[in-house]
Design a protein around this nucleic acid. Structure first.
Length: 860
DNA sequence: ACCTCCCGCCATGCT
DNA sequence: AGCATGGCGGGAGGT
């Protein structure tokens, strides 16, 4: 096989062990087997092996594994070692890692927990694939294989994949298969998440929570009501807030079925968690706050400790993966009380919408063929099949769904493409990692190893070649813009809407407001969630797609822009782009204003200023009726829309199909939206969950898929060779289309240049471990996206305006945060925040009472 | 003692 | 019925 194996990793760094590897690594299986014998004595066979062996993961197998299990790793190490040696020659690195082996190798026997950490595992996993894979190539990921290669249980792979899926870096293809998308879509995804987060008013929620905490600390006991109120609203009564998953363009659909299952989880949590970062001003989020928000209820604390603890556990899992992606890093916030662990966003700044640039929709040209698959996906998502009980749909819809599902299944079942093999070719972008270097050696090692081992990897090594990578990434920008213009057409599709509402369907798709150009996504809300939501400010107005969208987007953008501006210095992010006009008024919304900052303890920084903000925000919230709605699963309009629409519309499809772009817009989802607007505002949507989102589709369309794809292109893309079934092919095409087009077409977006992030510098502190962090950013393929938008962070500015205030103490603080004006600038105090954000360094805020500091420390 | 978070049991739901 | 997924929380390693 592939071989990649490389994996290796298990290195025990520490432990050292020897480094000698063997190489067996290659095929894990074989190796394993071989090894086992040897190892056998010492350790147990590991499960990995078993796994690797292929067995099916039957329970029995599990048992076996378990039994044997004990020390798989050891083996792995050995293997690794071997691998390394053989493969690479990078012993050095290894050495470094191992450094001291203490001599005992035995220790190695136990890899130490760290060696087994999800973060490390994730690095290994990521090392196998290029940041910006060539769409043309098939980038399939076979979970079993990966598990084997990495010598871990499959369960762990799921953890990683789920998080990656939430970022649309991978999408599920079929049963054991995922397709690697790398960072092509990342910016878009982040943009979408940001938009959703804003809509959900996470910033506000964060503030509230902080505020409460703060008060509590102090004794303020008051004010809860409002806050609680708000929160609840967000969550919905259920308490669960969200559960929806946001899908992006291109990626994902298939998951739908999967998603259906439990969407609650990791995938959704991951998205929400990311949203918190994107929305909050300092971009520092403590686990506690995140957990509370994710739980939905604020008071959770009181209620379920256990729940809270569980949530925290999961957040750590997610955080490890995100850290591996260099999107966040661990930091500590210091409060009076003490330090709290928190994570700081080190990823690219995003503009609200992804920027989409537009490229376009991805529609694949091929109409029918391509469409269908996508449709299916869309459909699924939209309607969750899963069945949740509720589900009721319009009969017609149901039929559609069924058919779709069946199709889907077929597809899934169908064998998929081979595995990763291609990777090698694909260029991996990894390359530019300057920062990485800084990062932990371990990581480096891993990478190296990988590289060496795998051909593709090599690329990385080479370097960064930014060039190569880029190719892939398409620069959407240009195109996108165009698209946007066109967007208007989208509206039509709305017609579809009616359908959506279908009452019960568990999930309702909502359209997000994408950012300006960005692609639109659909969110699926689950029924339960549905509840009230208030429309985001922007939304309320009419649904008109454009309008709404723009608004939101605008808002977001504006905010972002502001941030950028403010930050820009710091952060770097280029972005300023956003020229988008904002809508003047819009900004008011509070969304972010206060954002996170605030509250007490947790975020330190935030607190001070925040209070005021909080108050203000609160007020604002009240007014608004805050609603956060649950988030849903976002689906990229681009594809989906098109697809969805098609499916939904069925009849219409044809017409729509014609122009991809348009279609896209139309996405069914969108349709839904329309409804909302007016209604939304007010209230809840009873049955439907639909929330109001912004419907619009983004003119932009789209989808901009990361890559930029043009629809047309899609058709062309190369498909992987084998296509088992036509369906599959179609499916593939779609994906490809999405990706490929962009890739092919545009240059890569991000062109390397991007890297500029300051943060990279900051790296310093992070934890070493995994983090490494930021380095990646450069990668972000998307740079384009990012930059363009310029998202900055400025959230605060204007928004805050709302003065609510509750308690007084804040005044001083307030002043800090709030800046007078403009959005952009946060004023001084804010600066602090920014620091946090940007700099890793520490910022201190003075809050009236206390000062908070944020330190980025390394955790470990 | 607390922070992290690995491990894997077992529920869930698709096949 | 079997298997792929993945929720979940015990409990242990690290500090």
């Amino acid at each position: 096989m592939e071989n990649e194996k490389e994996n290796l990793f298990f290195e025990p760094h520490k432990r050292g062990l020897m480094k000698t590897p063997l190489k067996e690594s290659t095929a894990a299986n074989t190796v394993l087997t071989e090894i086992q014998p040897d190892i056998g004595p010492l350790t147990t066979p590991t499960k990995p092996k078993e796994i690797s062996q292929g067995e099916p993961w039957t329970p029995t197998a599990n048992l076996k594994m378990l039994i044997s299990a004990v020390s798989p790793e050891i083996r792995n190490r050995d293997q690794k070692r071997g691998l390394f040696d053989s493969m690479n020659g990078l012993p050095e690195a290894k050495d470094c890692l191992h450094e001291h082996l203490s001599g005992d190798e035995y220790e190695k026997s136990q890899p130490s927990r760290k060696e087994k950490s999800l973060g490390l595992l994730c690095h290994k996993f990521l090392a196998r694939y290029p940041n910006y894979p060539n769409p043309a190539v098939n980038n399939d990921i076979c979970l079993d294989e990966v598990a084997e290669e990495l010598n871990v249980e499959r369960r762990r792979i799921y953890d990683i994949v789920n998080v990656l899926e939430s970022l649309h870096m991978v999408s599920r293809l079929a049963k054991n298969r995922y397709t690697w998308h790398g960072r092509h879509n990342l910016n878009k995804t982040l943009g979408t998440l940001k938009s959703v987060g804003e809509e959900n008013k996470y910033a506000e929620q964060i503030m509230m929570i902080k505020k409460k905490e703060y008060e509590q600390e102090f004794d303020f006991s008051k004010t809860y009501s409002i806050e609680d109120h708000i929160i609840k609203s967000n969550t919905g009564q259920n308490g669960h807030p969200d559960m929806c998953f946001v899908e992006l363009p291109g990626v994902e659909f298939r998951a739908a079925s999967v998603n259906s299952r439990k969407d609650k989880s990791l995938r959704v949590m991951s998205q929400k968690f990311v949203m918190l970062f994107l929305v909050s001003t300092p971009q520092i989020v403590s686990l506690g706050i995140a957990a509370k928000i994710l739980i939905g209820e604020d008071r959770v604390e009181d209620l379920d400790r256990s729940k809270f603890k569980t949530k925290i556990r999961r957040l750590y899992d997610i955080a490890n993966v995100l850290s591996s992606l260099n999107l966040i890093k661990k930091v500590h916030v210091t409060e009076e009380r003490g330090r709290k662990p928190a994570f700081k966003w080190t990823g690219p700044e995003i503009s609200p919408s992804p920027s989409g640039r537009g490229p376009v929709l991805p529609l694949p040209c091929s109409d029918l063929e391509a469409k269908r698959p996508s449709k299916d996906n869309c459909a699924k998502n939209l309607f969750s099949t899963h069945g949740k009980p509720n589900f009721t749909r319009h009969p017609s819809l149901i039929k559609l769904v069924k058919s779709i599902e069946s199709d889907r299944r077929k597809i899934n079942s169908a064998p998929s493409s081979p595995i990763k093999t291609n990777k090698a070719e694909s260029s991996r972008d990894l390359a530019p990692f300057p920062s990485k270097m800084a990062q932990l050696a371990a990581i480096c090692k891993m990478q190296l190893e990988e590289q060496s081992s795998e051909p593709r990897k090599k690329v990385k090594v080479q370097l960064a070649r930014s060039g190569q990578c880029k190719p892939v990434a398409p620069p959407d920008t240009p195109a996108s813009a165009e698209l946007d213009l066109t967007a208007p057409s989208l509206i039509q599709p709305l017609g579809v809407v009616p359908l959506l509402p279908s009452p019960l369907s568990p999930a309702v798709p909502v359209i997000l407001p994408q950012a300006p150009s960005g692609p639109s996504y659909a969110i699926y809300l689950q029924p339960a969630q549905a509840q009230t939501m208030t429309p985001p400010q922007g939304l309320s107005p009419t649904p008109s797609c454009k309008a709404t969208k723009s608004k939101d987007a605008a808002d977001a953008i504006t905010e972002k822009a502001a941030r950028d501006a403010t930050k820009s210095g710091a952060s770097t992010r280029p972005g300023s782009l956003l020229p988008t006009p904002e809508r003047p008024g819009a900004k008011n919304r509070d969304k972010e204003p206060a954002g996170e900052r605030g509250s007490k303890r947790a975020s330190l920084l935030e607190d001070g200023g925040s209070k005021k903000k909080f108050k203000e925000d609160l007020k604002g919230l009240e007014n608004v009726s805050a609603t956060l709605f649950p988030s849903g699963y976002l689906i990229p309009l681009t594809q989906c829309s098109s697809l969805g629409a098609e499916s939904i519309l069925s009849s219409k499809e044809n017409s729509s199909t014609l122009s991809p772009n348009h279609r896209i817009y139309s996405s069914p989802i969108t349709g839904v939206i329309p409804v909302t607007s007016s209604e939304l505002t007010a209230v809840n949507f009873p049955s439907f969950h639909v929330t109001p989102l912004k419907l619009m589709v983004s003119p932009t369309s789209v989808a901009a898929v990361p890559v930029g794809n043009s629809p047309a292109l899609t058709s062309s893309h190369p498909v992987p060779v084998q296509n088992p079934s036509s369906a599959i092919v179609n499916f593939t095409l779609q994906h490809l289309g999405l990706l490929s087009p962009s890739v092919q077409v545009s240059a890569s977006p991000g062109a390397v240049p991007v890297s500029p992030r300051i943060e990279a510098v900051s790296v310093i502190s992070d934890n070493a471990g995994t983090q490494q962090g930021r380095a990646t950013r450069y990668d972000s393929p998307v740079p384009g996206q990012n930059q363009p938008n310029g998202q900055s962070v400025a959230v605060m500015g204007t928004q805050q305006p709302v003065p609510v205030t509750p308690k007084g103490s804040q005044s001083v603080a307030e002043s800090f945060f709030r800046t007078p004006g403009g959005p952009g600038k946060p004023t001084g105090p804010s600066c602090v925040d920014f620091d946090g954000a940007n700099k890793t360094s520490v910022g201190t805020l003075f809050v009236p009472q206390r000062k908070l500091e944020v330190s980025t420390e390394d955790v470990h």
